[in-house]
């Protein structure tokens, strides 16, 4: 029964990630030119990224089978996050009329957003079977980019909101969970 649910969920997630999300975002973004909407894309992308990257350590620590099965669905979830991040960045660059020079500087939150987006684009375009077959072991290495992307995303949003506490709390929580999960799997 659980397997059936997971398979159905996988099917829906794949349709969402590969078909619905890019189509809806393209249509919505060309019709509604609102900064709030584009910012909302970014918020969703950030939440999604945190969820995806916390999923594995939490499933390893808790040992819940259902969570472990969700780990196998991270790719479509990641592709959804990629589309959200891409449209968040691209539409805000357009809507805010941002120039390359406006996004530079280590004290500029846009800089971290741009770097995170570049990482996300690399992750997005390598999230397919062709890349998996071509890159083989290196595919996993490329996917490790998700970690710096997470920290850069957190830094970007925390600086944008002017509240650094979120960056420190979520980063610490993530590192702590990863260490805990690593120790737990090593003992096994």
């Amino acid at each position: 029964m659980q397997q059936v649910i997971i398979l159905s969920l996988k099917k829906y997630l794949e349709w969402t990630a590969y078909v619905i999300v890019p189509f809806v975002l393209a249509v919505l973004s060309s019709v509604v030119v609102e900064r709030e909407l584009y910012t909302f894309y970014g918020t969703l992308a950030e939440i999604g990224l945190i969820f995806i990257l916390l999923l594995k350590p939490i499933s390893q620590i808790s040992g819940w089978i259902s969570l472990r099965q969700l780990v196998g669905l991270r790719r479509p979830m990641g592709v959804t996050v990629f589309w959200l991040a891409l449209f968040h960045g691209a539409m805000l660059i357009y809507e805010r009329n941002l120039l390359w020079s406006d996004m530079m500087g280590l004290d500029n939150y846009l800089f971290y957003g741009v770097v995170a987006l570049l990482g996300m684009i690399i992750l997005g375009i390598t999230s397919n079977n062709f890349s998996l077959r071509t890159l083989k072991k290196n595919w996993k290495r490329v996917q490790y980019l998700a970690y710096p992307v997470l920290f850069l995303t957190l830094l970007h949003s925390a600086m944008a909101e002017g509240e650094m506490i979120k960056f420190y709390v979520v980063s610490t929580l993530f590192v702590a969970l990863k260490v805990w999960a690593h120790q737990k799997t090593r003992k096994r």
Binding site: W15, Y18, V19, P22, L25, S30, L86, A90
Partner: peptide, 22 residues
């Protein structure tokens, strides 16, 4: 601008290819 039009069409194209492959 052209780059954004390409992105929007690219996303729609990706959605069509995604649907076809699924």
């Amino acid at each position: 601008p052209l780059w954004l039009q390409l992105l929007l069409f690219g996303a729609v194209g990706a959605a069509i290819i995604g649907a076809k492959s699924l």
